[in-house]
Design a protein around this nucleic acid. Structure first.
Length: 304
DNA sequence: TGCCAGGCATCTA
DNA sequence: TAGATGCATGGC
């Protein structure tokens, strides 16, 4: 037996201040569970248990998968340096203070696409439930009762009838269509990654069920477009973090997303020591929310 | 029990 | 073109 393939606890590397609780509960991923021995997760057919001790990231996984997880956890991004730069901005410093251990994960494209299609007009507990049922329906069984996220080919063979068990509502059609577009080559992550970000966003939005929000999440989490965060989106999210008064019930999730956007925006847009540009003035949030009287209250501007 | 959710497509004025 | 509405389901 090849000993190198035996899963065992080992150090992947310095955690660099990463906090798994903050990162894995921020709403960017949906297949992690906290258990007594650490965080249990599945990505791209790989199972792992992860924990941070003394700022070292420990994994219980086959060592040959270390490269995958190093990329997944973005261990090569120097968040310490980022945080020092953020200190120049009151806004960013507030976000860092709220969740200094938050990191943006690099997740598999198809998993991100599907989970964020599921996320629309939905809440996180239910999103997780639908994702788990989807994996049980057509994902590979990695261990008794443990399923990988479905491959596009496996999902594409499903039907609206077979998808009914997901209880995902109209989102099932979006999932089927997305899987089939990936399978027929019309949607290819490598091609998308090679495009300029705006072109990649435009192509994603050709997909039924993908609007600006879902497209940006796929660009950011699933395609490595770290700057998939237009200024107005960034500022909307920042508002939710810095001015929580009047936030809807999902404030926790909103905060997580806000911080992720802020980190990535600042990382790619702010030259060292430079202040972020002024916030453009925009009307409130989405039309639908305004119509329902759920618009976040506007707050006075803060200079950064 | 009823509101609302990490949107989006479609309809209407 | 902007605003309104409906969509399926379940968490809270």
């Amino acid at each position: 037996m090849d000993e190198s393939k035996v899963p065992g606890w080992h150090v992947l590397g310095s955690a660099g201040g990463m906090d798994l609780d903050q990162t894995l509960t921020s709403g960017q991923c949906f297949r992690w569970q906290r258990q007594a021995d650490g965080w249990h997760g599945i990505a791209e057919g790989r199972r792992v248990t992860a924990k941070v001790e003394d700022d070292m990231l420990w994994l219980l996984s086959p060592p040959e998968e270390d490269g995958f997880w190093r990329h997944y956890f973005a261990l090569d991004t120097d968040y310490g340096a980022l945080h020092r730069r953020f200190a120049a901005s009151k806004r960013l410093a507030s976000c860092v203070e709220a969740a200094p251990g938050l990191r943006v994960l690099n997740q598999p494209f198809f998993e991100v696409l599907c989970t964020f299609l599921i996320s629309q007009n939905n809440n996180i507990p239910r999103i997780k439930g639908i994702v788990e049922r989807l994996c049980m329906l057509c994902g590979e069984e990695l261990a008794p009762g443990v399923y990988a996220f479905p491959a596009p080919e496996a999902l594409a063979t499903q039907t609206p009838e077979s998808m009914a068990v997901l209880r995902a509502g109209w989102r099932s059609d979006y999932l089927l269509n997305a899987a089939r577009r990936v399978c027929d080559g019309a949607l290819d992550p490598q091609t998308l990654s090679a495009l300029p970000m705006d072109a990649a966003r435009e192509q994603l939005m050709q997909l039924r069920g993908v609007g600006p929000k879902v497209a940006d999440c796929v660009l950011l989490y699933g395609l490595g477009f770290a700057d998939a965060c237009p200024m107005d989106v960034w500022m909307k999210r920042a508002m939710a973090v810095l001015f929580p008064r009047g936030m809807p019930r999902a404030a926790g999730a909103c905060k997580g997303i806000a911080q992720q956007y802020i980190f990535e925006y600042a990382r790619t847009h702010l030259p060292r020591g430079e202040k972020p540009p002024a916030k453009p003035r925009k009307p409130g949030l989405s039309r639908a929310k305004s119509a329902k009287g759920k618009t976040l209250p506007r707050e006075p501007e803060q200079s950064c």
